[in-house]
Amino acid sequence: MIINHPLLGPRDSAEFVYLGTADLMNRPDPDTATPEDWHDYAYLRDNPAGTHRELWFHDGGDRSILIVTRDTITHEISAVELALKTRAEA
């Protein structure tokens, strides 16, 4: 696969480490979260046949974590964002 890095352009996926769903960015609020919220965050994962937002760590590159929107059936990548920037702007 080729991931179009927002800063570095198209890079081979071999340079990246897959970190899992982008939902991992939504860590429960420790002050208000219930045990169920923590359980869901730690253990429950969607397994969609289709669009999936996921984190890729540019281990062999600039160490950015990217949010990649990828179709799990075709591997087509429709969007790539920097996790840090996306998160800070949210």
Binding site: L24, R27, F57, L84, R87, A88
Partner: peptide, 11 residues
């Protein structure tokens, strides 16, 4: 650590 920095503590 990069995950915590970039994804959980971006500010």
């Amino acid at each position: 650590m990069e995950f915590v920095r970039q994804c959980l503590m971006p500010d």
